[in-house]
Every structure is written in structure tokens, then in C-alpha cells.
């Protein structure tokens, strides 16, 4: 069920402003791909084009192609709602539904997909919470509000919610930037264990994190302030962090700018 993503000639706009320019790249299934780069270089925008979340912002639009295996996500016959059901997303700030219990948070996506019955739901909820390394911490309080958990637990709850529907791809937009180091470690361990089943794309500001969790790293940059972001290079994480092809990449990872 993990699928390959092939991006070609992708441009994304906010109104008249072009945020990313002519991106082409491939994301391999059952691997972790990290997007790194300075703020405003369009890496989050690119991530949001992959599940058609970019276009929910008024005035935002996308040109180009994103292939999920053979299906063009931007084809005219494709329903963005169906795309989002197939591609899960975890956000920068943990965003469990504040009015729902832990159980209902995880079950939210399942209910949208028509899964009914407390027993069937319960099974998948437990499996998802175990998958997100959260089960042991919350199994005695599934009916308590999800918003009552700590930040790190909330983020794992959001991951459980995303994987409950068994998506083909999991997108993570700086999932640890609001968390402390211990919670960050827990999420990183989780990412490592999830990549057996899912295609994972993670945006991060933390270069050590990219080096730790990803197999492939893409470095994004913009030519100048106000210019759209571009993909500078994408390669094996090892190669990017030890022997990058582009000088800009080397400058960035060695801390000379950004």
C-alpha cells in the first residue's frame, strides 16, 4: 500500500506570488524522505501540494503533476477529498480535535471512511495507538479528552489518527518543532518504525533530525528574498550530509547560512 510519488514540473502559487518553482523529484515507497532548507523556501508548501491541502488556502493554486504510482493527483477527475483520505498528514503543532476523546480522535478518520461499530473501531484504534507508541500511556483513559495529553503525546495521537486509515503516504510538517527533546526522540523512533509500511515525507528545520531519520534528503533554497523556492539537490541522506554536489547545500548544512 505504500506508493511512489513522482513530482514533475510543479509550481505552487499564493495568489499572484509563486512560492515554489518547477520542482521535479521522486519519493520512494517505504522510505523516509526529508525536506530541509531555510525558512520560506517552500518546503512546507511543497508538502501541502502532495495531499492537495495547498489549495484550501484562498487564492492558492498549483500547476504541474504529482503522480501517486500512476494516478495524477491533479487530474481533472480526481476528488481532492479522496486524495486526502489516501495521504495522511501530521502538522507542525499537535492538533487533536479538542472536543473529542482520545478514542474518538483516532476514530475520526475511520468514521469518515464509513467504519462502524464500537468493536471494529476499537480494534483499529488500539492497533493505531500501538503503532504510534501511545497505547500503554493512554489505554486506561481512552474516554478522556485528547487535548488533556502532553504535547508529545498529542502529536503521537495525531500520528495515530493519521495512520488509523492506513494511508498510502504519510506527510509530516515539522512534526517535532513544538516538542521537547524527549518527545522528539519518541517521534523519531516512531518514524523509523513506520517506514516499513508507509512512504514518509518529513519537513524539518532540524538538520540533525533529517540526518537521523531520513534515507533521502532534498535541500531547498531560494535564489533571493521574494523569489520562489527551488529544489537545489536531492540525494541519499548520507551523501547530502557528507559530500553534497552543490556548494549551497554544503554551506547550509555546515551552518554557513540559513
Amino acid at each position: 500500500m505504500a506508493k511512489r510519488i513522482e513530482i514533475s514540473g510543479l509550481n505552487a502559487y499564493y495568489g499572484k506570488t509563486r512560492a515554489i518553482e518547477d520542482i521535479s523529484m521522486t519519493v520512494e515507497p517505504r522510505s523516509v524522505t526529508a525536506f530541509i532548507g531555510p525558512s520560506g523556501c517552500g518546503k512546507s508548501t511543497l508538502l501541502r501540494t502532495l495531499n492537495r491541502m495547498h489549495e484550501v488556502i484562498p487564492g492558492a493554486r498549483v500547476e504541474g503533476k504529482v503522480l501517486l504510482d500512476d494516478l495524477n493527483l491533479y487530474g481533472s477527475e480526481v476528488d481532492p477529498v479522496a486524495v486526502r483520505r489516501a495521504i495522511g498528514m501530521v502538522f507542525q503543532r499537535p492538533n487533536p480535535f479538542p472536543t473529542m476523546s482520545i478514542f474518538d480522535n483516532v476514530a475520526a478518520g475511520l468514521k469518515l471512511n464509513g467504519v462502524r461499530g464500537r468493536g471494529r473501531l476499537g480494534e483499529i484504534v488500539e492497533k493505531s495507538l500501538r503503532g504510534a507508541n501511545l497505547w500503554n500511556e493512554v489505554k486506561d483513559r481512552l474516554n478522556r479528552p485528547g487535548a488533556g495529553l502532553s504535547g508529545g503525546q498529542q502529536q503521537r495521537l495525531c500520528i495515530a489518527r493519521a495512520i488509523a486509515v492506513e494511508p498510502q503516504v504519510l506527510l509530516m510538517d515539522e512534526p517535532c518543532s513544538a516538542l521537547d527533546p524527549i518527545s522528539t526522540l519518541a517521534i523519531e523512533d516512531l518514524i523509523a518504525s513506520l517506514k516499513d509500511k508507509y512512504t514518509i515525507v518529513i519537513v524539518t528545520h532540524n538538520m540533525q533530525q533529517a540526518a537521523r531519520v531520513s534515507d533521502t534528503t532534498g535541500f531547498f533554497n531560494l535564489a533571493a528574498q521574494g523569489q520562489p523556492g527551488r529544489l537545489v539537490e536531492i540525494d541519499d541522506t548520507n551523501k547530502i550530509f557528507t559530500n553534497p554536489t552543490e556548494k549551497a547545500t554544503e554551506d547550509y548544512i555546515t551552518g554557513r547560512f540559513g
Binding site: N51, M53, V56, V81, A82, V83, R84, R85, A86, G88, M89, F91, R93, N95, P96, F97, P98, T99, M100, A108, G109, L112, N113, C158, R161, A162, V165
Partner: peptide, 26 residues
Amino acid sequence: PQANVEAALALGATRWEVIRMAVLPF
């Protein structure tokens, strides 16, 4: 919160489902 609306959208909720999941309970 926009974050809750986006959470629902990202799960593949339609506009009515977003309202039912995130807006009305809130």
C-alpha cells in the same frame, strides 16, 4: 482554530464533514 479545520480536511473530510467534526462540536 484553523488547525482543527485543517486536521479534518487532511483526514479527507468534505466541507459538511469538517463542519460536523470540527466546527459544530467546538
